[in-house]
Amino acid sequence: MKKSVLVFVGAALAALLAATPAMAQKKTLAVVVKGLDNPFFTVLGDGCALWNKENPTSEYTCLYTGPASSADEAGEVQIVEDLINKGVAGIAISPSNAPAMATMLKAKAPKMPIMTIDADLGAADKALRKTYLGTNNYDMGVLMAKHLKGLNAKGGTVCMQLGNVAADNINQRAAGFRDTIAGKKGIDRLKGEGGWTEIAGCPLFTNDQIDLANQQMSDVFTKNPKLNAFILVGGWAQFGPSAYAQVTDQVKPKLASKELIIIAGDTLPPQLDALKNGRSHAQIGQRPFEMGHRAPAVLIDLIGGKKVADPLFTGLDECVPTNLDKCPAK
């Protein structure tokens, strides 16, 4: 990372930590996400903010932060390193690049409790954090596969859209999807297993960029007119509802006839609108608000030496056109 960027990140973090005299007197519980440009994390941050509102007399304050762009993996690592150097009370991290975050944590050996939220570290590095709070991401992929098989029992061609290459949560979802379609574990790529084959050029990696996600979808639909399924392992394209509407206009008749199936992760309001309007067939929802709201309490328990379960799963919601009225929009 360039020196000028490091200075900016450090200055911004210092400003956040000293935003008000009251906040400065409190101990900081930091919640660090992959990027502030992702609406999913905005909802997670709302949970952190509500915790502060509900606990005005607490000696702790919840600080929601992260790099401006979800594509800035190095920036997220630097923010966490700065928080460790400043001696905050505890940190909950959603690592964008799990190996890079683990490397930094090994080097710093932080004294405060570290937990992961939304996304975990790799299996070999889990000892670097106390617990994980968030989605069972493997099971999320399993549910996506089950809905696809229920909508198309014959199989066909499929493209998966992923996020960052080194994001453990996204890779777990992909594994759950492939294993369930194939009927056996350890499938790196579908080549006819369960009747499904991944097309050339897929999976796609969005780097958590909304515009790129929509462009990728459009390109795939244009180049593969006989595609049978598109799986958004995360909700990136749908986070740009206008662009997503334009992209799915290309294939609206196929979506209506179920010749093409779209299944996506997350259930933010624009995504449920897409489901309602026939622009997807199922949404597998996480619970980001709960993650942000629970994280401070978990960190306080860890600081106090209490035994905390690992992992702490927040559950999943299966949203389809027939249960939209009961499906939580977050």
Rank of each mutant, 00 (worst) to 15 (best):
T65F: 03
L36Q: 06
N55H: 11
E54V: 09
D46E: 11
V7E: 03
S70Y: 10
E54K: 02
L17K: 10
T61P: 03
K3V: 11
S70I: 06
F8K: 15
P39N: 09
A11Q: 14
A12D: 11
P39G: 10
A19E: 14
G35S: 10
P21T: 06
V33W: 03
L50F: 08
F41G: 03
A71P: 00
T20R: 01
L29A: 05
A14N: 13
K34L: 06
C62G: 02
N38E: 11
S69I: 01
D46Y: 05
L44E: 11
A11G: 13
E59S: 12
A71G: 07
V7Q: 11
V32P: 01
C62K: 03
L13T: 02
K27F: 08
P21F: 08
V33T: 15
N52C: 01
N55S: 04
V32Y: 07
G45P: 07
T57D: 15
L17N: 10
E59C: 00
A30W: 00
K26S: 10
Q25A: 15
P56N: 10
T42Q: 11
V9N: 12
A71W: 02
L36N: 05
A68R: 03
T20Y: 09
V33Y: 00
S70N: 12
G66M: 04
D46C: 00
T65R: 03
S70K: 09
G10L: 10
F41L: 07
L17Y: 02
K53T: 15
K3C: 02
F8A: 14
L17M: 14
S69W: 00
G35Q: 09
A12T: 11
L29W: 06
D46S: 12
A22H: 01
V32Q: 09
A18I: 04
G47V: 01
A30K: 05
L63K: 06
V5Q: 14
S69Q: 12
A30T: 06
K26A: 09
S70G: 15
L29E: 07
V5S: 12
V5E: 15
L6S: 13
L29Y: 08
S69V: 07
L44F: 02
T61E: 12
G47T: 02
A14D: 15
A19H: 02
A11C: 07
A12L: 09
V33D: 07
L36D: 05
S58G: 03
A22G: 03
A71V: 05
A49R: 02
P56F: 00
E59F: 00
A15V: 09
L63W: 07
V31R: 02
A19Q: 13
K26M: 12
S4W: 05
Y64G: 00
L6R: 14
F8D: 15
E54C: 01
L16E: 13
A22K: 07
S4H: 04
L29N: 06
P56C: 07
A24R: 13
L6I: 11
S69D: 12
T28C: 12
K34M: 05
M23G: 09
L29S: 07
E59D: 15
L50C: 07
L50I: 02
S69C: 03
L50D: 10
M23F: 07
